[in-house]
Each structure stands twice: as structure tokens, then as C-alpha cells.
């Protein structure tokens, strides 16, 4: 005996709530996303248990690479153009030698007194270079600065 052919019932699922949630998440992620600016140098940060957040604006970033090169960068494009020239305004950091670093630090701080200094050094950078940079900071009267670290995961 043949079974009578059953007619398929088209299934309709109301997708509206799912789509609503999806859009909600989409707007959330779109609004919270901040794109990471391209880095001039790649540094591997050391770990620490410190939980102070990096300030988002008005920062001078001094980057020390693994090989001991020193880069300086400021977050405002306008200030970058006036410090390092128009051709460097789109670069996040510019490599400097120690004497220029001193004068640029002073120049940057006279232009914007609110600037805070952060040191972003590779974890395997030689301590001597870091020490020299810290000496320059002290000489230019920057006695308070931050070291950028990753949060220790253990």
C-alpha cells in the first residue's frame, strides 16, 4: 500500500526578534569600535598588574624598539605637523636621536601644556636606552610619566 503523499507545510519562523537583536549589537559594536592606528614600530609590551588606564588624548608616546631606536609621537595630527613637518603628519611616530628628542619634548610641551608622557618600550629593549630616555624626561622636567604595559593574565 502506498502512503498518501503528504503535503509539505511551509514553515515560517518569525525572524524579527533575531534581526532586532542583531541590529542592536551592530550599532553597539559600531559605536564602541575604535580602530587601532597603524604603528610605526612593533613592540611587545611587558606584563604588569597595574590597572591604570592609558589616557586617550593629549599624550606624547615615546616608543623604544627592541633594537633601541627611539620614536616620538603625539596623538594630534596638527601638533605632529608642526613638530615634525607636514610630510610626517600622517605617521604615528618619528624616529629621533637623543638631542632632538630633548628639544622636541620641550617644544611639544610648550605648545600643549596638557600633554602627558607615556613610555612604550619593548620588553626586551636594553635598559640603558630606557634609562637615557628617562634621564632626558627628568631633564625636561617631566617627572611624572607612565609606562605602557599589558595586564598580566595569570
Amino acid at each position: 500500500m502506498k502512503k498518501p503523499h503528504k503535503k509539505r507545510v511551509p514553515i515560517r519562523i518569525d525572524m524579527t526578534p533575531m534581526v532586532d537583536v542583531a541590529f542592536l549589537l551592530l550599532t553597539f559594536f559600531m559605536l564602541t569600535t575604535q580602530f587601532k592606528p597603524p604603528e610605526e614600530v612593533d613592540v611587545i609590551l611587558p606584563d604588569s598588574n597595574s590597572v591604570i588606564k592609558l589616557p586617550e588624548r593629549d599624550v606624547i608616546t615615546l616608543t623604544i624598539s627592541k633594537t633601541g631606536e627611539v620614536f616620538m609621537g603625539v596623538d594630534s595630527q596638527f601638533l605632529r605637523a608642526s613638530l615634525f613637518g607636514d610630510e610626517n603628519k600622517l605617521r604615528m611616530a618619528v624616529q629621533l636621536d637623543m638631542p632632538t628628542l630633548t628639544s622636541k619634548l620641550i617644544e611639544a610641551r610648550t605648545r600643549n601644556a596638557k600633554l602627558r608622557t607615556v613610555l612604550k618600550c619593548d620588553k626586551d629593549a636594553e635598559y640603558g636606552v630606557v634609562m637615557d630616555v628617562m634621564d632626558i624626561l627628568l631633564k625636561t622636567n617631566i617627572s611624572r610619566f607612565n609606562l605602557v604595559t599589558n595586564l598580566e593574565t595569570s
Binding site: 591604570i52 607615556v118 634621564d135 631633564k139 617627572s143 611624572r144 607612565n146 604595559t149
Partner: peptide, 13 residues
Amino acid sequence: RAPQTMELNMPPS
């Protein structure tokens, strides 16, 4: 995760 920082206060030289 925003990067964390350590604050250092050094006495003027």
C-alpha cells in the same frame, strides 16, 4: 582591552 599603564613619579634630578 585598552592598554594598561604604570605610573612613575620621579623626583627632579
